[in-house]
Design a protein around this nucleic acid. Sequence first.
DNA 1: TCTGTTAATTTGTATGTACAAACAAATAAC
DNA 2: GTTATTTGTTTGTACATACAAATTAACAGA
Lengths: 145, 145
Amino acid sequence: MNSDNLHNCLFFTSNRLSRVITKMAEESFQRYGFSPTHAYLMLAVNEKEKVTPTQLAQILHMTPSTITRFVDKLVGKGFLEREVEGKNIFVLPTKKGREAQANIEEAITDMYKNYVALLGDAQAKSVTQMIHETVEMLEKNESES
Amino acid sequence: MNSDNLHNCLFFTSNRLSRVITKMAEESFQRYGFSPTHAYLMLAVNEKEKVTPTQLAQILHMTPSTITRFVDKLVGKGFLEREVEGKNIFVLPTKKGREAQANIEEAITDMYKNYVALLGDAQAKSVTQMIHETVEMLEKNESES
DNA sequence: TCTGTTAATTTGTATGTACAAACAAATAAC
DNA sequence: GTTATTTGTTTGTACATACAAATTAACAGA
């Protein structure tokens, strides 16, 4: 296989990027005891104070079942709790969860620094921006079909 | 969480893209009975005719253990076989594997068409190119540390 | 020839994520 | 007021992928 087949393929290339950047992110977050995705979920809950799984799924662009799994873990670790209110289920931060906010922000800054050190500020910004545009285009039309 | 936190994050954005594009790719490949990654592995083996797991890992930018798992599956389905030669282990296509080549190429073309239809040719090319550059930068420096 | 070292591969296990089915609660239809 | 429908959530299960440990085979040094 001439390797152009791979490098010209958006599927292959973006999965490869995702593996590499996830590994970097995990290293940054490790010392704070979070996985990067859990951290973003915590940020979302801390900001809203009270949010349903479905809303979290929309914010994080994941399926509700995935959200359930993450919330389970974070409840287990004492960062979140669930509250049932009639038909509604809400996810809220515990005290410990609110207190973790500063650490999470620090870890995110850390991760940014790590990849900006390798890419430079301009490249980091523009590739992120371009990926964001692309995924929006793909999702908008996907949902119409 | 203001959603800029998410959209400005290369980790989050590229994982999101990876989920979306993988889903599209799976749809294109489904009718041919392959998952997209298995298909690329088949392409690599068909081209080399005889290749070690380590080489496959390098070509596909995955770990050897992941390659073992994929080869197991494709052997199980009758597309590949393993050959032990003294200390070396080679992966080769079976007859069935060689015959699948045309289908795989067709599926890849299909997948390309699908995302180019949503992105346009220029955007598809340039985002792929830019991601490729980025991942190369990240990996080059990663390996030095 | 035995022993220690190195390199390649596989295995055990874990994580992230999704789909489809099951479940629960609220609401609508009669 | 019971039954059917819709909507949100969770559960069972499955797949892609990785890490660390175990295995295997060749090789080097004594």
